[in-house]
Amino acid sequence: MPDPLDLLHLRTLVTIADTGGFRRAADALHLSQPTVSQHIRMLERRLKCVLVEKNGRTSRFTPEGERLVVEARRLLAAQDQVLARFSEAPRPQINIGSTEHAADGLLPDLLGVLRTTYPEAGLHFRIDRSTALTDAVIKGVLDLVIVLGGNTAEPVGTEVGVLDLKWFAAQNWQLPSAPGPISLVAFAEPCGLRRRAVRALGERGYEVSVTAESGNLDGLLAAAKAGLGVALLPCLSAAPRDLAPIGGLPEVGAIDVRLVTRRGLEDHIENIAVQAITAHYRAISSRGLRGVA
């Protein structure tokens, strides 16, 4: 591989062409005239041709020198573009996390507000369990997360909404009589929703058996649709496809939706997120919709 051309020497060559001489180029580059001359000689040795020749007291470019000036301008322009791109301030990024229950309905509203307010920011998303999201925001990996309450002894973050909790199972699932055994489909531990379901069924007199568990909502719904048991789910709009609401089981109340932000997050971002999420749940409540998120 041939030795590369020195970009500093090429810039000296172009400056000579732009200013009209060695002395003026030296002044423009804040170099001595002998240094400017040395740069040209080194280019000539490298390319094995004469680039500039004396003409009395003046100098002029040879045809090879004129060709090199054209090529040098291209190389220097490319270098300047690269340096400009890397010297730009990095694009700000907002890292958002959400549970699956909030992703379908809430995220579009929140993202629309953030994109409008911060058009220059990149938005990065993560869908996960409430416990994993809360841990990530505490560690500073995520900027703000939307989680379900009830997974910690002390509530974290700001309450931004409430979801009713309802029982659902496959269309042909038969509710057993209490006392007696009952099959439960639930999220894998740790899960506050699972603990509430087990406690409520136990207080009704059922012997609870978790017959299927999943780390995500899709797996839980698939198990319930397969008739493996009853599931306790947060509600927003319509029941999940192929599942039916189950009456005759204890009322479990509601679960709060919370916004948790990392320590040090700008107040204006947190305030905008709180307003957008609160408005989302308020709008749903005003329409009187009930179902599963």
Rank of each mutant, 00 (worst) to 15 (best):
M1P: 09
P2R: 05
H9Q: 13
H9S: 12
L10Y: 00
R11K: 14
D18S: 07
G21D: 08
A25M: 05
Q33S: 09
T35G: 10
V36H: 11
V36M: 14
R45T: 09
L47E: 12
V50K: 12
V52M: 05
V52K: 04
E53T: 11
K54S: 11
R57H: 15
T62H: 06
L68K: 03
V70D: 11
E71F: 05
A72Y: 04
R73L: 05
L75F: 00
L76H: 08
L76V: 01
A78I: 04
A84S: 09
Q93S: 11
N95E: 11
G97P: 15
G97V: 03
E100T: 05
T116C: 15
T117H: 14
P119H: 04
P119V: 02
E120T: 13
L123Y: 07
R126A: 12
R126C: 10
R129E: 13
D135W: 09
D135N: 07
A136D: 13
A136I: 05
K139Y: 07
L142C: 07
I146P: 15
V147L: 02
E154D: 11
G157E: 02
E159V: 10
V160A: 04
G161A: 00
D164E: 13
A169S: 06
P176N: 06
A178W: 00
A178C: 01
S183G: 10
V185K: 02
C191T: 02
R195G: 15
R196D: 01
L201G: 07
E203L: 04
V208F: 02
E213C: 03
E213I: 00
S214V: 00
L217Y: 06
D218K: 08
D218E: 13
L232C: 04
C235F: 04
A239K: 07
L243A: 00
P245R: 00
V252H: 09
I255G: 08
R258E: 02
L259W: 03
R263T: 08
G264I: 02
G264N: 05
G264P: 07
L265A: 05
E270S: 13
I272P: 08
A273L: 06
V274K: 15
I277P: 11
T278W: 09
T278R: 13
H280W: 06
Y281S: 12
S285D: 15
R287Q: 15
V292A: 13
V292E: 09
A293P: 13
